[in-house]
Amino acid sequence: MRKVILRLVVLLLLAVGLAACSEQGSSQNSKGENDSKASKATTEQSGNASEESVEDLFKRVKNNSPTSERVNALKDIAMHYYWYGGDVKKAEKNVFKGITLHGDYDVVEEAFRQASQIDPYDLDLRYSIASAQVLQKDIPGALDTYQEILHLDSKQFNAQLLYGIYSKVQGNEADYQSSFKKLDELNKEKADAYRHRVELVDEKKDATLHTEAPDDISKKNHAFVVLGYALSDEGKMEDTLKERLKVAKKAAEEFPESKMIVSGGVPKKGNTEASVMYEWLADHGIDKDRIIKEDLATDTVENALFSMEIANQENINDITVISSASHMRRALVIFNEIDRMFEKVHDKKSGRQITNMVYMDYDSEKEARKFTKDEELVVYRDLMRASGIWSFPGMQR
């Protein structure tokens, strides 16, 4: 019991610490896998935007309401559509008259845009606009938004950084290099830290994806970390998760001394990804004492953050991440980033080896080796989030 309480306290402190790393906009700090709309939380998860109906939120956006109430209502509308989705036509009719919206993320972007029109000096709102544009793969639009932020405040480190990173994703090496020169002037040490993160992506994009257990897996103080995948609305496993578990079962049988950390929250019908993975592995012969449930994570960043904390608490050193091939490069980048974060927290090198095993969800190994622009985009997007830069400052990492 004491260990559980200690874990929860440490996780809370880490969440606060990561938020404090963000310098987006004002002093406020700032989902694929569980990172996309397909796996948004159900109404079993609560939040400010889910405590009242979307109709009530629409009613709060009135010209005769105080400025802060209108801005907060628009922010709540944005978060409601981000997490739960909704009737886009109803949003057009009630709030965004004269604007054609094509999907939930359009609503998110437009809600933040209208809030920014009301309060143009709140840079966090502009960061949120850019994040909604990144979610829709509108990188030119996001770059323009970061430029707007820099026009208002040229010393915004995160805006300059994100402008450079997404310029690189666009293939604009000149703007990437120019941005980092400006970052050097703002904070050379921090700029170099992000250069190392770019090098991490360059390294992991060529990572070998192992369908069998790597030869160098340690047989001591080692764990397999199985990453979850969104459950159906009925709380059942989809085929993708079942395939990952088949890989995990094989690995567990080959390495009987290794622990198994099953990671994934996002409850559906009372089930979390971790709970159904735990039961599946136990039903297929894996000793329950070997399996550790991590049922708080809602996305890849939290898979890494919370699983690595368990590894530290359980004195587990080396880990092997198990996921789909299409997800693995992103997972490796994020797990290595979180490992570096823990090294800073504890002020010592972990010496941790992070390997991988995959369920091959590509048609061929040749296709699996391709690091596409779309994949590069989500890798960098999540890496920035893992580094402490929230997508929607003060609301959602």
Rank of each mutant, 00 (worst) to 15 (best):
V4Q: 07
I5R: 05
L6F: 09
A15G: 03
V16W: 10
C21Q: 15
C21M: 09
G32R: 13
D35R: 07
S36R: 12
A38E: 14
A38D: 14
E44V: 04
A49T: 05
S50R: 08
V54G: 08
L57R: 07
F58D: 06
V71Q: 12
A73N: 00
I77Q: 05
H80G: 03
D106A: 09
V108A: 03
E109G: 01
A115C: 12
Q117W: 07
Q117C: 11
A132C: 07
L135T: 01
T145H: 06
I149L: 01
L150P: 04
Y163I: 02
G164C: 08
E173M: 06
S178C: 07
K181P: 05
E185S: 11
N187P: 06
E189W: 01
K190I: 02
R197S: 10
R197A: 10
E199T: 10
L200A: 05
K204Q: 05
D206W: 06
L209Y: 05
H222K: 09
F224C: 11
V225K: 01
V226G: 03
Y229F: 10
E234M: 11
K242N: 12
K249G: 02
K249F: 00
K250F: 01
I261L: 12
V266I: 13
K269N: 14
N271V: 01
T272P: 06
E273W: 00
T298Q: 14
V301Y: 01
A304W: 00
T320S: 11
S323D: 07
R329W: 13
L332S: 03
D339Q: 11
M341S: 08
V345D: 09
V345W: 12
G351Q: 10
Y359T: 08
M360N: 14
Y362I: 09
E367H: 08
A368F: 09
E376I: 03
L377F: 14
M384P: 02
R385Y: 01
